[in-house]
Design a protein around this nucleic acid. Structure first.
Lengths: 233, 233
DNA sequence: GAGTGGTCTAGACCACGGG
DNA sequence: CCGTGGTCTAGACCACTCG
């Protein structure tokens, strides 16, 4: 049967997606090769390729040369998180953004910092502690280490008007990074800064970024109680 | 100046990425149009398009017809999280996977469940409580609600051998979903099931999925202390 | 109105990897 | 080996949107 000709890759993607979701093509099924689909839908192979590639990028298809294309066995959920600047995140919700630098020092990093960053344990790093606020209430505590050997300009900055978060994004481009999400209880200092109880469960983001092979910065963001990260699947 | 001809889109992407990261093209800069880049690199415009589109999808470029292509002002970090089956996640680390159903009942959902799911508050839903274990130690507690009106086959399943997590993935394809990450303290029952203290901060994943416009299931995964979700940026 | 990206085509060659 | 997806090309038309 010839389907009604679908000539653009979006329509084609939709149709293939429909066949997958309706179990017309169950998980594991090998689907027709590109040339055949092109014939069925009356379009060029490259258009089919575009549609199938898009589905493969979303994890719904598995493609291999010669082996062909199959419906993925486990459509493992992929969530794309967009991590905005805290300031933008707060302002986007119509709240007023506040910022306060709590501490700035140049000091020897603890092993928990120099280790992952791969920096010399006997070379001082810049350490900044800052509080982000939404509508004048504590929102997140930023505990950051910066390697001045990689970003010398950071030594000239006081971080009283702009957060390290934002300053680095503007002034220190990175080539790679990693991010981790977890949960943690605050210590006494952190609880005080966030104005919450010491037994509250707090959401934590740890991030580290590199420029080429050199670690730029390592940061731990501790969010006030109730914080959630949401996204569509 | 003619750059050494780059004929494949990956090399081209690399070169453009280099110019962005090296600030040769600072944030906000309009970059040459596709046709010009094609001429510079000695390749077809569609190849340039492929490379630039790829960078735009990663949020590094902003493209608009007529306006042209610009380097994104805020390279807001995007993290792609792949949420695997708990079983696969555990086995991938070389640990033994264990599973235990703790409870199965058909009961009226609390408002906190029927509300978000958009189901009638006076129609019973399937409620399953199950424990996932790694190397015989509690790993995550799965607290799930399933609408049997959408997935009737779920009524035939005892969930003693297979987790709702895995059963649903196999038997109830979804068309959309949402996921949220947060931190929470366990209540007494949860602490007992996870064999941890009641004041521990636990990582929580809430997920809800739909088929078309009908909510299939809502689940809350409570992870044992120390759990982290990691990914590259 | 006109310039730029978005997309489609028909054909070609190639790289990978299954049999 | 040889079938399949991956990619490139040259050209074309179109859609969006800025000026």
């Amino acid at each position: 049967m010839n389907s009604p000709a679908l000539r653009d890759w979006r329509s084609l993607r939709k149709e293939v997606l429909r066949r997958i979701q309706s179990r017309e093509w169950p998980p594991g099924t090998p689907i027709p090769k590109e040339a055949d689909l092109a014939a069925e839908f009356g379009c060029a192979r490259s258009t089919v390729n575009r549609a199938l590639r898009s589905l493969a990028e979303d994890g719904l298809l598995e493609r291999r040369r010669k082996a062909g294309t199959r419906v993925a066995l486990t459509p493992s959920a992929r969530a794309v998180l967009t991590i905005p600047l805290l300031r933008e995140e707060i302002e986007a919700r119509g709240q007023s953004y506040g910022y306060q630098r709590l501490r700035l020092e140049s000091t020897l990093p603890p092993a928990a910092v120099s280790g992952p960053m791969g920096s010399d344990a006997d070379r001082p790093l810049l350490h900044v502690l800052a509080l982000h606020m939404a509508d004048h209430r504590p929102y997140a505590l930023e505990d950051r280490w910066i390697d001045p050997g990689v970003v010398p300009a950071a030594l000239e900055e006081a971080f009283t008007q702009i957060s390290p978060n934002e300053w680095l994004l503007r002034n220190a481009p990175y080539t790679s990074g990693e991010i981790a999400f977890s949960a943690s209880q605050p210590d006494r200092m952190e609880a005080m800064a966030l104005d919450c109880g010491g037994e509250e469960a707090l959401f934590v983001i740890d991030r580290m970024t590199w420029y080429e092979a050199r670690a730029i910065t390592k940061v731990r963001l501790l969010f006030a109680p109730g914080y959630r990260v949401r996204t569509a699947l």
